[in-house]
Design a protein around this nucleic acid. Structure first.
Lengths: 196, 196
DNA sequence: ATCGGATCGAACCGACCGGTACTATCTGTG
DNA sequence: CACAGATAGTACCGGTCGGTTCGATCCGAT
């Protein structure tokens, strides 16, 4: 069959649908754990469609990673912002968001870090590094607003806590990981803030 | 040529040599980034030799991961022990050892975590989980000897710092990562220790 | 001196890989 | 209604994958 009986022919929508389905499949199976044929059958498209939209499997992978990084960073930033103006509350909100993520049954660690571990090619590494940059920017901003003596240092330390909690939750034991990391983060924040 | 002109026929030594060379190759290229043929030519052995010793590529991979976990955990524990009896000094020594590791030009993050990200199969995941368990045991021991109010909590938080520092050093920027994590670790240790 | 085991090198296998080509069929537009 | 573009489905391509087999050759122990 061509083009599926009742489906709308809308390249932009098709592309978005491919991205969404491919994101899940690549996250679950790993970049090298599923081939183009498996991806296409899992997504429900033909190879030609995939190649017309993304040119290459690597092209699809990079598009998936970029989109995922964008979405995750936006979501985390909005969680922080929704917590109000208090930097401590914002920091706590970040780890609360992480807890929800860790409890997701399909949680397998950070997709960007996993991808960089699998394809340590320049494009993938660049996307991953930018992803960590976004996290760092968010956390450093919180550190600044909290009045930390050295916001850039504290930002990096908080970034390590976030990524460490994710790693531990993914590969060791996710029980309470986010809460434990949150408590550590607040301790670091307090210690780095001149007593008010 | 068979058996290489001047080589000793010693299965145990051959096995150890394969393990050592394969460890580097698999770490550098990733588990799926190098095939059996590439491994054999890189190691300098024939396929038959590899398959007689390890049965399967997966068998080789698991043996490599197990041996690496053993070696790394032993080395880290001995670094801590060599720092004397003071728990704070032991903790600092752990991060000093990490700094040396991060500065290694071939540093690519934790091999065990990378492996788990690539092959999230039960055997690999079990080896990785045990690896983190060993880290946790070391750090929890330090927390206990330091008199932390909740040594198991502090141990987990320190584990997150160790793993987070490794991730950040590998994928973002290794500059000062170990020192920044060390400072954070000591801060957490102080905060968790009833004032003496 | 002999022999069994260890090893190399190379050929070989089926399966799967990423990617291309082509046809049939549907949608959306004028 | 007609046509152009998007898509499914399928067959196909060369290459590489993990893994097996075999003969030649060398080591080490008897």
């Amino acid at each position: 069959m061509p083009v599926a009986k009742g489906s709308t022919i809308d390249p932009a929508r098709t592309r978005a649908a491919i991205l969404g389905a491919a994101t899940e499949l690549l996250y679950e199976h790993g970049l090298d754990g599923i081939g183009v044929a498996g991806l296409c059958s899992g997504i429900g498209i033909s190879k030609e469609t995939l190649y017309r939209h993304f040119g290459t499997k690597d092209g699809l992978v990079e598009a998936v990673l970029r989109e995922r990084s964008d979405r995750v960073a936006r979501r985390l930033a909005s969680c922080a912002q929704a917590a109000g103006d208090d930097p401590r509350a914002q920091l706590a909100a970040v780890f609360d968001a992480l807890r929800q993520w860790y409890d997701d049954p399909v949680f397998r660690g950070c997709a960007l870090l996993n991808a960089a571990a699998q394809h340590h090619t320049d494009p993938v590494r660049a996307i991953t590094a930018r992803h960590l940059d976004r996290y760092l920017e968010l956390l450093t901003g919180i550190a600044e607003r909290a009045g930390a003596a050295d916001p850039r240092l504290l930002g990096r330390q908080l970034l390590m806590l976030v990524e460490g909690a994710t790693v531990v939750a993914a590969h060791h034991d996710s029980t309470d990981a986010a809460d434990q990391a949150r408590q550590a983060a607040l301790t670091l924040l307090s210690a780095a803030t001149p007593h008010t």
